[in-house]
Amino acid sequence: MAEDMATIYVMGKAYEVPKDLTIMKAMEYAGYRFLRGCGCRGAFCGACGTVYRNVDDYRLRVGLACQEVVQDGMYLAEIPFFPGNKAFYDIEDLEPNSETILKLYPEIFRCLACNTCTKACPQDIEVMEYIQAALRGDIAKAADLSFDCLLCGLCAARCPAEIVQYNVALLCRRLYSRYIAPKAAHLENRVEEVREGKYDKELADLKKMNERQLAKLYDSRDIEPGD
């Protein structure tokens, strides 16, 4: 085998692929055309969760197929869908406290603090910490810690307590943003001004202008200094 090639086993079947490819591109190189398991191709959507094991290693590892580079002797399978539990709620009817979270996701009581989820997370999120924060009712902390979550499902796939961490996290971020973070007063004012029609006349005048008139205004507009 050429030095720059690696053998990978896609669901057990061997393929020879260039060593520096991501799992996703290596599978395409081998001849796979994705229907599932491929979305943004850039670590934003969480569609490409993958479980793998390297030869001569008993450990199961997980990662994103669009990010993880292949290794010689890698056994892998994508988990493009995870049937995780999701609670349904009306965000307007909730109160931002631990009772709410425990009522919607009582299973978080079962957390063993084993930290398996944190070790699994491809986004380097302190998953266990945010679950613990949610348990304590520290919604702001759970929201903050979980912010980069892609809902890839890899944490939940490994959790011995069958907690669906990412859905708990999403609930915490929505509760925090809806109820705990103060509302933007300037935004509320502006919405009211728009409703009252404060800008209608000015906009109507602008809409009537031809290109030359607009360009004149545009080229002489004052620009707020940046940071």
Binding site: R174, S177, A184
Partner: peptide, 12 residues
């Protein structure tokens, strides 16, 4: 709806 915008402590 609960989108977590970047805000100042006073909500700005």
């Amino acid at each position: 709806l609960g989108v977590m915008f970047d805000k100042e402590p006073d909500g700005t």
